[in-house]
Design a protein around this nucleic acid. Structure first.
Length: 471
RNA sequence: GGCCCGUUCGUCUAGUGGUUAGGACUCAGGAUUCUCAUUCCUGCAACAGGGGUUCGAUUCCCCUACGGGCUACCA
């Protein structure tokens, strides 16, 4: 499928929140790339921030990933289980003078930053052995910083192309906190190396971290993977869509009744184009078409209206059995007590007017119970006076005598009566629909009546005839 | 402040040194229909601005503007 051998990628969320749209897209592109190249797709939980990392988010993220259908290979790797490894790397770095202890307090650093000094001044860079001992003996805390050499770093991003950074732009960044635990830039390198990751595919917000990481790769003598940075997903205000700006969690999309494939389809089209005019894809089709070099650099605005359209397209293509299954996942009570054949018919009638599973549920109540109220506007418009009662009543009486209860019979009956009463068919159709469903619109009236059955239709018509005596 | 990245209809995007700048969503109008929806047709709507290079730039270069990212003992 591709000339790249044994590709290995990873999705590395930090469990400080649930899986949201942006991270799901990153996961998807990693997944698509892995599958397209017959490679491996791993999951790594970046929980080195002990304060903010929570088990419940790990669970939520994994659940969302499974719901989306983005299954990973092997077991997820937890960075919190690998602290020993990082500590030993830090020790090595210290011993080889690639890194050094910094005793500057947080307060001092913050002050400097407030004064416009955005880079670490390098105060502790060249402390003598004695100085270090003195600090250590006095029990002062310290962080470990990487000693960034002079020079520059270049890498070829698979999406952004060649990126060039002068080391003057990189200060001696922290690789170990004062509690001794490693920071992101260190662990990501150590783990990507150990997991033999070949392609690091992540958000564009990491592009300026990349040179820092390359520095670490070099110091450690590790080979450098390929990098691909994905454009951001933006909110309507063009700002990066983030948890803070109310980025919807993936769970929300499930609750709203979106299909995983529809969501994935939409997400894929945000920043990637398939090179054809087709816009509707299943996951398998996405895997086939996906190419990293067709991803662009520009951030894309999330648009729920388009998502909804794509969702509707998937809904229409979806098998009725699958729709039923999906509905039961979000509402196990739906259609309880009815035969599945009946439920299938309900879904078939609603199929092309539902953009989400939720809409099936919301639009189907009259298939299971008599309408409790009647749309007011439609009542006024379609049941103006007692003439309607008369014609509906005639129609009802006629229906009672129908032996073969099917849509053709019902329709011909209705048209026959409309003609006899010298009214248009619509004058009978609309009030009948209102009486039966309580709402002004829906699937074909006659198909609906056939499905509801004679008794139900007669009962509801009687009820309406009592409710709408105008005079 | 510094560094990096980006800029084609409102949104997602295609595209080229010479095109009537194409498609999709949305919106408007029409056809079909028992309504709504679907489907089909039509329409509205874009190359950020200024300089170059060139016979010719939306396309190549520079500047400006605007937007985004990073600049954390977050990831």
């Amino acid at each position: 499928m591709s000339d790249v051998k044994n590709t290995k990628v990873r999705f590395a969320p930090s469990p400080t929140g649930q899986l949201h749209l942006g991270s799901a897209r990153t996961a998807l592109f990693n997944y698509l790339f892995a599958k397209h190249t017959n490679g491996q797709f791993y999951m790594r939980i970046e929980d080195t921030d002990i304060e903010r990392s929570k088990q419940k988010y790990v669970d939520q993220i994994c659940a969302s990933m499974r719901w989306l259908g983005l299954d990973w290979d092997g077991e997820p790797l937890f960075q919190s289980t690998r602290l020993d490894v990082y500590h030993s790397v830090i020790k090595t770095l210290l011993e080889t003078d690639s890194a050094y202890r910094c005793f500057c307090s947080k307060d001092i650093l913050e002050e400097a930053r407030n004064e416009g000094l955005f880079q670490y001044s390098g105060t502790c860079r060249n402390l003598s052995e004695d100085d270090i001992k003195k600090h250590l003996n006095s029990g002062e805390g310290f962080v470990v910083r990487l000693q960034v050499p002079k020079g520059n770093t270049k890498f070829d991003d698979m999406i952004y192309g060649s990126v060039h950074v002068d080391h003057q732009e990189i200060d001696d960044f922290i690789i170990a906190r004062s509690d001794g635990n490693p920071t992101y830039n260190l662990v990501v390198v150590v783990d990507d190396h150990e997991m033999e990751i070949t392609h690091v595919i992540r958000g564009e917000d990491h592009i300026s971290n990349t040179p820092k990481q390359i520095l670490i790769y070099n110091v450690l003598g590790f080979s450098i993977p390929q990098f691909a940075h994905l454009p951001m997903i933006l909110g309507p205000d063009k700002k990066r869509l983030s948890k803070r700006h109310g980025a919807p969690g993936i769970q929300q999309f499930k609750d709203d009744g979106y299909l995983p494939d529809a969501l994935l389809n939409y997400l894929a089209l945000l920043g990637w184009n398939p090179g054809s005019e087709n816009e509707i894809f299943t996951l398998d089709e996405l895997i086939k078409s996906f190419e990293l070099d067709q991803v662009h650099k520009k951030g894309a605005v999330y648009d729920e209206v388009k998502l909804s359209w794509i969702s509707g397209q998937h809904m229409m293509r979806m098998g009725t059995a699958n729709i039923l299954e999906g509905i039961h996942e979000i509402n196990s009570e739906w259609g309880k007590g009815y035969e599945s054949r009946y439920l299938y018919s309900v879904l078939d009638q609603l199929k092309q007017r539902s953009k989400s599973l939720r809409e099936f549920i919301d639009q189907s109540s009259y298939y299971f119970s008599d309408p409790e109220s009647f749309d007011e506007k439609s009542s006024r418009k379609n049941w103006k006076d007692d003439n309607t009662n008369t014609s509906v009543n005639t129609f009802k009486n006629y229906l009672e005598n129908i032996e073969n209860w099917n849509s053709e019979e019902i329709e011909s009956a209705l048209r026959h009566i409309a003609e006899e009463n010298e009214i248009s068919a619509g004058k009978l159709i609309h009030p009948t629909r209102l009486a039966l469903s309580g709402v002004p619109s829906g699937p074909s009236l006659f198909a609906m009546m056939e499905l509801l059955g004679k008794d139900v239709c007669i009962r509801r018509l009687n009820k309406a005839l009592e409710t709408f005596p105008q005079s």
